[in-house]
Design a binder for these strands. Structure first.
Lengths: 135, 135
DNA sequence: TTAAATTATCGCTATATAGTTATAATGTCA
DNA sequence: TGACATTATAACTATATAGCGATAATTTAA
């Protein structure tokens, strides 16, 4: 327990407003970039989507996404290294689950931003924007 | 003006809660991935940081980041294509500015997530986590 | 018009990685 | 033990891109 933060009165865990990208050193900036990079691949986003409703093993994810098994394993390893998913072995199967539900909130925020961008750029907006706002 | 959305009563612009990554088609998912990709490079994050306090031209950004001019131009072109920045030419200079302040909010949220991940993974947490929470 | 300043683009190299097939590694069950 | 199921990894190809130097393209100023 630190409790020694100056001008801040809170119990233990920092609130979101405490975080700021400004003035990060190289290492921290690389971590942030790596986090974004983990989310920068369509099939990885598909994988994360399959984990919305709870943990799944590699076979299930492979089937749900339609990708090859080796490919999925590599993507899952990357997501695990990046800290976005947790894993647990049960017998011969390995179950993956989302490390933090906030990941989905983040993705949904980006969907909103992308919808705005698409609205701004073209005005052949309708189709894609409808997709992005669909739920 | 559509106004024909079923079961939704709002004026014109959708609120953030309307967006969700689930059930996106391939095109929309690619757009979301591209958005994350634009943020997945440390020097591009540095560039965005230089735009926090207002627009800057290429020379200024080049000097502030210490990168090469050609490199900065390429990164800026990518950020422009991705819709993250806007640009305006004044004489021989081109000024870039953030398209949406929400971009910084997003980056700060990610800083918070990364801090959590780092806390979870190692416990040589102190240094990096201090960086991520600094402001 | 010429020179200078600013930015974008070209050509290039090095590196990273998405995807595939084949196979190794591990655990389960007969 | 051996057969099977599941997952991770190796080897490979193709593609993307970060970075650099040189240069083209554009505008301003002398």
């Amino acid at each position: 327990m630190s409790g020694g933060d100056i001008m801040k009165h809170r119990d233990s865990s920092p609130s979101e407003s405490d975080f700021c990208m400004q003035a990060l050193d190289e290492s921290a900036l690389n971590h942030v970039a790596a986090y974004f990079r983990a989310l920068s691949e369509p099939n990885r986003l598909r994988i994360l989507n399959t984990l919305r409703n709870g943990e799944k093993n590699v076979s299930q994810i492979t089937q749900l996404t339609g990708c090859g098994q080796a490919n999925i394993s590599k993507h899952l390893a990357l997501l695990y290294e990046a800290g976005l998913v947790l894993r647990e072995t049960q017998g011969t199967a390995t179950y993956y689950r989302i490390a933090d539900q906030a990941t989905f909130d983040l993705c949904d925020i980006v969907c909103g931003n992308v919808a705005k961008i698409v609205s701004r750029q073209h005005d052949s907006t309708a189709a894609l924007r409808a997709q992005l706002t669909a739920r």
